[in-house]
């Protein structure tokens, strides 16, 4: 820093502490709610310090079957599957299409690139009904395939890999060719290992993306056995107007939001890299 004024240093920390408190506030309230019994939360004058019921509430979330939603563990399983399939699927189809676009010259190559680019401009939110119809016509409602495959096309991941491949020296591919590696061998032995960090960073971002999906599962699942956590907690919250069990609902919400938060906290470096690079 250019100058060393104690006043500025104190102000900096005050601003940041205030920021951290504001950012953490809603989750703290949820945490407090999740740690009390049902009677503590019937009015706005709720306690401001955590109670001792967290474990009991969590156990109730995990074991109790609630009306209108699937069992918690099943929804968690569905969310996990959905996030994992989307992550791996996006990475797999993006890396091979980027490979084709960078390392081959073939008729239709530019067209393929633009078609992939166009997906950026067509978020599912703006084509809800026709996309739903396609999935219904293909018989994919209430299935993992229907939940995941339509979300797997990814222009951003393709661009990321394309950009990364362009930075790999041309000579590496030429050396591999002289060394007797064909395209697939080159891909497996050279390109894939070199892409490790990029793949890992994308995994973090895409897992979070997959875990967060809400509108799409809402559209294509009617059978509660395919509900995801995001849908489940929303439904639990919605019916609770009549029968408020806020301690249980907040415990469920905390459990549902925990996995991606843990990933961001413990893989912060990859997370930052993934977020910044996919936006280039």
């Amino acid at each position: 820093m250019v100058e060393n004024r104690p006043f500025l240093a104190v102000l900096t920390h005050l601003v940041l502490l205030a920021g951290v408190v504001i950012v953490a506030f809603p989750v703290y309230i949820a945490l407090v709610a999740a740690t009390h019994g049902p009677t503590a939360l019937t009015s706005g004058a709720m306690p401001l310090l955590p109670g001792g019921e967290l474990f009991a509430n969590v156990m109730q979330v995990l074991t109790e079957n609630r009306r209108g939603v699937a069992p918690f563990w099943l929804m968690a399983w569905n969310s996990l599957w959905m996030a994992v399939i989307i992550t791996l699927g996006k990475i797999a189809i993006s890396i091979i299409s980027a490979f084709a676009i960078v390392y081959f010259r073939f008729p239709g190559r530019v067209l393929a690139f633009w078609l992939i680019f166009i997906t950026l401009m067509l978020p599912v939110e703006v084509r809800i009904i026709p996309t739903f119809k396609v999935v219904a016509d293909l018989g994919l409602l209430n299935s993992y395939a229907g939940l995941t495959i339509p979300l797997i096309a990814s222009a951003t991941a393709t661009f990321l890999f394309r950009q990364f491949f362009m930075t790999i020296p041309d000579e590496l591919m030429e050396a591999a060719r002289v060394d007797g590696a064909g395209p697939l061998k080159f891909f497996r032995d050279i390109l894939l290992p070199l892409s490790r960090t990029n793949i890992a960073a994308l995994c973090v971002i895409l897992f979070i993306y997959g875990w967060m999906q809400y509108l799409w599962p809402l559209l294509v699942t009617i059978d509660p056995n395919y509900y995801t956590l995001m849908m489940g907690v929303k439904r639990m919250a919605a019916v609770s107007d009549a029968d408020p069990q806020w301690n249980i609902i907040m415990a469920a919400v905390l459990l549902a939001m925990l996995p991606p938060i843990l990933i961001v906290v413990f893989m912060q470096r990859l997370f930052v890299k993934g977020l910044v690079e996919t936006e280039k």
Binding site: I96, A112, I116, T131, I152, A153
Partner: peptide
């Protein structure tokens, strides 16, 4: 190599 991505793009986008 581009087929999976393009198929999904064409069918679902």
């Amino acid at each position: 190599l581009v087929a999976p991505q393009l198929l999904i793009t064409l069918i679902f986008f």
